[in-house]
Design a protein around this nucleic acid. Structure first.
Lengths: 250, 250
DNA sequence: CTTCTTTTGTTCAAAAATAAACAACTTTAA
DNA sequence: TTAAAGTTGTTTATTTTTGAACAAAAGAAG
């Protein structure tokens, strides 16, 4: 076991576990503490690990900064239920659009190991999928700090250049009377751009949003092909949507 | 068992196992340690294996640890010196290109509070500037996991649509004889695209990279207008660049 | 603030790996 | 056959790496 091999193992272990003790590493590598320390000094100089007292930590990838746990964690169970349904429709080799909604974001864990391509304007989605088997294409344009997403004219043009099998989009409000409504013009126009370029568009929509309306109307119900919601949706509401010709999965 | 046969067996064994000891190889080839070492020196010179003390490793295993996060912390002081110089050239209202180099990344802290616009293909740069007074525009295209950046045809087209006051770009190697060289074709073409669309192009280059050459030549010295390096650059080297007509700040 | 424990850096000796020198062997060609 | 050139193996000196011992520094506990 020479330096090169140890180095590999150390970096790998640190990446996997986040942090390790000198002791643990010495044990793992079957070598002395002193050697481990010397290795860590070198690895830290190369920036491969972050040296701490008594061990080493992962150098946090810059993409860790993109996180919107806050919003995504609300109604997590129901969102996961929706995403599971959505994930089942995906096939190997698919090209997907994913917008910057918090529900859509939770689709990431379910597709990590699929061999597909995702085109997205959401920075948290990129952060989640950057170390996965998914090939990621990021939409370019103005970065919106609040939504941690990319929007604007350039983004729409970029989306218009692609064609995908499926688009997974979120929405702030949906009602039979008014159609799709949003709180943000920019988010809405990106969603519309994606829906336009997709063979099948899925609207991922938490049951509490059914029959709610936000201030900005941006598209009729015909924008999407399939509405995916959770199993706590009121049956009468779901029936009403079906009556109106909407395909609902729940 | 002549050299050709041994060579084949060694390379094959290294590929299969990732790494091997001189001892193991000597045993396998029924020859002496010394011969194995001599063979390894030749194979390493040809780039077929990576020589380690006590043995050899697969080339890929030895090099794939070099991803982005790793590099930003190396030679931090000198990089910061360069970035300070670079930051002084920036004026309110400027539109900047910033590429995905690790030196360029360290420019972020120095421009956080400026009222400027940054167009970049680097995810770490976006992460650093997303909560700052800088308005960020992200280049779209394929996401490159290793470099934490966006590259590709779409990225180049996107860049071509913009015009900036200044471009800050990095480079893997620069020499008077060969010009600018890189380790990655994708990184290089993005840098060129940015330089083309900028009024003034600054090359941020750590002094250790002066007069080094990487495998891929991608542009002459005329690609950039001003070379910014640190104060540990050898005076004779700096002079040589000035003699050759390069504007150097350090 | 002081004391105690843990971690670290340094020095040094032992062990391992390498390079150099040289002898033995093989191959090649006159 | 024999000399020359090139390989290979052995011995020896040099360099690098390693682990142990111990002093210095950093945290933690009182």
């Amino acid at each position: 076991m020479n330096f090169q091999n140890r180095k590999q193992l150390i970096v790998q272990t640190v990446e996997e576990r986040g942090s390790v003790d000198v002791r643990e590493l010495a044990d793992l590598l079957q070598t002395s503490d002193m050697t481990v320390r010397r290795d860590l000094v070198q690895l830290a100089a190369q920036g491969l690990v972050y040296r701490t007292r008594g061990g080493a930590m992962k150098v946090s990838a810059a993409t860790d900064a993109f996180r919107f746990e806050n919003k995504a964690a609300v109604n997590a169970d129901q969102k996961d239920y929706i995403c599971q349904l959505a994930a089942q429709t995906i096939q190997e080799g698919d090209i997907l659009f994913m917008d910057c909604g918090s529900t859509v974001f939770r689709l990431c864990p379910f597709i990590r190991n699929r061999r597909i391509t995702v085109i997205t304007n959401s920075l948290p989605v990129v952060a989640e999928l950057i170390n996965s088997s998914v090939s990621v294409n990021l939409v370019g344009g103005e970065v919106d700090k609040d939504r941690q997403a990319v929007h604007g004219l350039m983004a729409e043009e970029h989306i218009a250049r692609y064609r995908a099998n499926r688009a997974f989009i979120g929405v702030d409000g949906i009602s039979l009377r008014k159609g799709l409504t949003a709180n943000s013009e920019r988010e809405a126009s990106t969603a519309v751009a994606m829906a336009r370029q997709a063979e099948t568009t899925y609207l991922l929509c938490h049951s509490a949003k059914l029959e709610t309306e936000k201030y900005l109307y941006f598209a009729p119900l015909t924008l999407f092909d399939i509405l995916i919601t959770d199993n706590e949706a009121r049956p009468d509401v779901v029936d009403a949507y079906r009556q109106a010709g909407v395909t609902v999965m729940n």
